[in-house]
Amino acid sequence: MENSKRRFLKGTCALLAGASGATLLATVSASNEAKADPSVKYALIHDETKCIGCKACEVACRETNHVPEGVARLKIEQTGPYGEYPNQFYHFSRKSCQHCEDAPCVNVCPTGAAFIDKETGIVSVDAWKCVGCQYCIAACPYKIRFINPVTHAADKCDFCRETNLAQGKQPACVAACPTKALVFGNLKDPTSQVVQVLKANPTQRAKVDLGTRPKLFRIVAKSGEVAI
């Protein structure tokens, strides 16, 4: 069944590659529709001043979303130690999907497998449509996509869209964080915690000069704020 699906979709891609101008215009139209302003706009804040590098978020993500060993939707990267012993400290940063409003991965996908959910603004993947061409992996400026060795489709963080979020829960990483270093919510709700934290703290986003408009924010740790 899996092989039949991929043969069908690959054949479709071949047809698309030789499409007429009218088909290309239809593709552009569909892309513009995908960029329509969602009714909800989810975002995530990683507060590096609170992160202790315990990686509980990584474990929760893997278990909740059945992520196979050898690949990961989320990584906490540690750098350091900095400073002189015994006053040394480490820095922890999050590497995961940025959920761009103008997502290069979506723009290059030939089958529509990569898409932006109109209701939430979440960048997601339809594994059934994915043919494993890896265009999205090449196009992502944040280098966070991978091919799932079980589904053989592109994979990444989707804010637990099909698991916890679908059940009205917080993303697994947010729920598991013992220091509340992760804040998730709707940017369009002025009363949401994510909006209140953004208003109260200076934040950074990665590679904003590319015009991708990422929705993963960082509260950057200052030297010595996180010590072990």
Rank of each mutant, 00 (worst) to 15 (best):
M1L: 12
M1P: 09
L15E: 13
G21R: 13
L24D: 10
A26D: 12
A26H: 10
S31H: 06
K35F: 06
A36M: 10
V40L: 10
I52W: 08
K55G: 11
E58C: 06
T64H: 04
N65P: 01
V67Q: 04
V67L: 08
K75V: 08
I76T: 08
G80Q: 10
F89G: 08
F92V: 10
F92C: 04
S93L: 08
Q98R: 10
H99T: 00
H99F: 02
C100F: 03
E101D: 11
A103G: 08
C109T: 02
F115Y: 11
E119M: 06
I122Q: 00
V123K: 01
D126T: 07
V131H: 05
C133G: 05
C133K: 03
Y135R: 10
A139N: 05
C140M: 03
Y142H: 13
R145W: 03
F146Q: 07
K156L: 11
T163H: 09
N164A: 15
Q167D: 14
Q170V: 11
V174H: 00
C177A: 10
C177H: 04
C177K: 01
L182F: 06
L182K: 02
V183N: 01
F184C: 07
G185E: 01
N186G: 06
D189P: 06
D189Q: 08
V194H: 00
V197M: 08
K199Y: 07
N201K: 13
R205G: 05
A206W: 08
A206E: 15
V208I: 15
L210P: 03
G211C: 09
F217A: 03
S223V: 10
S223F: 11
S223M: 10
I228K: 14
